[in-house]
Amino acid sequence: MRDERDYVEYVQARMPALRRLAYRLSGDWPAADDLLQECLVALYRHWRKAVAADSLDAYVRAVLVHAYLAERQRPWSRRVRPTAEVAELADAPAPVPGGGAEHRVDLLAALAKLSRGQRAVLVLRYWEDLDVAQTATVLGCSVGTVKSQTSYAIAALRRLLPNYVPGGTDIP
Rank of each mutant, 00 (worst) to 15 (best):
G167L: 12
A101M: 13
D54A: 14
S151W: 12
S77K: 05
V146A: 00
A109V: 14
L25Y: 01
V86Q: 11
T145D: 12
S55W: 01
I171R: 06
S142D: 08
G140N: 05
V80F: 08
D131W: 00
T169G: 09
L40P: 02
V63K: 15
S55I: 06
A17W: 04
A17I: 02
T169D: 09
D34H: 13
D3S: 10
A101G: 12
R5A: 00
G27L: 02
A50K: 00
T83N: 14
W29R: 03
V51I: 15
A110N: 13
V86P: 11
E88K: 15
G99D: 01
D3I: 04
A53H: 04
L64A: 04
D28C: 09
P166F: 03
A136W: 00
A84N: 06
D131N: 11
A42E: 12
P172L: 08
R2G: 11
H103S: 11
L161V: 02
Y152D: 15
A13P: 09
G100D: 10
A87R: 09
P82F: 04
G140W: 00
D54Y: 04
H46Q: 12
R14K: 13
L18A: 01
L43K: 03
S26K: 08
A52G: 14
D170N: 03
A13N: 13
A58W: 01
D129C: 08
R2H: 11
V41I: 14
R158S: 11
R125C: 10
A67P: 06
I171H: 03
A133D: 06
A120V: 07
A133N: 10
K147D: 05
R14N: 10
G98L: 04
L43S: 05
Y7W: 08
G100W: 08
R78C: 12
P93I: 00
Y68K: 03
